[in-house]
Amino acid sequence: MSHGFLSPTGVEVTFLLVGVVTLGAAVVSVTTRQLVHAALWLVVALGGLAVEYLLLTAEFIAWVQVLIYVGSVVVLLLFGLMLTRAPIGRSPDADSGNRGVALGVAVAAAVALVWLVVDAFRTTWIELDGASAGTTEVTGESLFRHWVLPFEALSVLLLAALVGAIVLSRKRNADVDAASSGKAGAARPAGPSTRTAAGAKAAGRAAAGRAAARPGEQGAADAASGDAGRRAEGGER
C-alpha cells in the first residue's frame, strides 16, 4: 500500500479535521476570558484527543483518556472553579501579564514535541486494515513486558504524591486538634483546602488500579466531606 500526502484516505482526512478542531478548542480554552468556558473547551480538546487516539487504533488509550481526563480531571477542575470563583460572563482578572512568556514556552514545547515525534517515527505507518495495534491486550503486554520499570517508577511517584498530600492535610488537622482539644465533640471548621483534597483525589484516581492507593482514601475522603461543612467525625483522628 502506497502512502502519499496527496492521496489521503478518509481516516487521514478525519484525523486532520479532528486535529484542527482539537487545536482550535485548545486555543480558545487558553484565550477565553470566561473561566468555566475555558474548562468546557478543555473538554472538547481532550475529547478530540481521545478521538485521535481512536483513529490511531489505540482504543484502550482513548477510553482511558475519556475516563480520566474528561470524566474526572475536568470535573475536578469545574468543582474547584465552582468552589472558588466562577462568575457567569467575563472574569476581569482572568488574564496574566506573562502572556508572552507563556506563548514562548508553549511554542517551544510544541516545537520540541513535534520535532521529537517526527524524528522518532518519520515514515512509520499504522496499518489500519490489519490487526489492531492498540487493543487492551497489546497495550497491556507492552506495558507490563517492555515498560514495566517506568510503570513502577510512575506508580511510586504517584504514591509519593498521595502520601505527601495526606501528610500536608493531616498536619493542619493536628494543629486544629491541638487548638480545640478542650472542646471535644464541638463542630470544627472545614478541613484542608479544596485544592489539597482535589490533588489527593486526582492522585488516588490515577492510581486507581493499584492497591497501593489504599492509604490515600482516608485523607481524601475527609477532605471531600468538608464540602458539606459538617464534620461530625472530628474526634476520629
Binding site: 468546557l40 473538554v43 482504543e59 484502550f60 477510553w63 482511558v64 475519556v66 475516563l67 474528561v70 470524566g71 474526572s72 475536568v74 470535573v75 469545574l78 468543582f79 465552582m82 489492531s132 487493543t135 487492551t136
Partner: peptide, 21 residues
C-alpha cells in the same frame, strides 16, 4: 467494543458534566 468496560464507565462519567454545566 474491545474495551467495553472502560468505554461504558468513561462515557457514563461524562454524563455528569451535563449536571455540572
Amino acid at each position: 467494543i474491545d474495551a467495553g468496560v472502560f468505554f461504558a464507565l468513561a462515557v457514563m462519567g461524562v454524563g455528569v458534566l451535563g449536571s455540572l454545566m
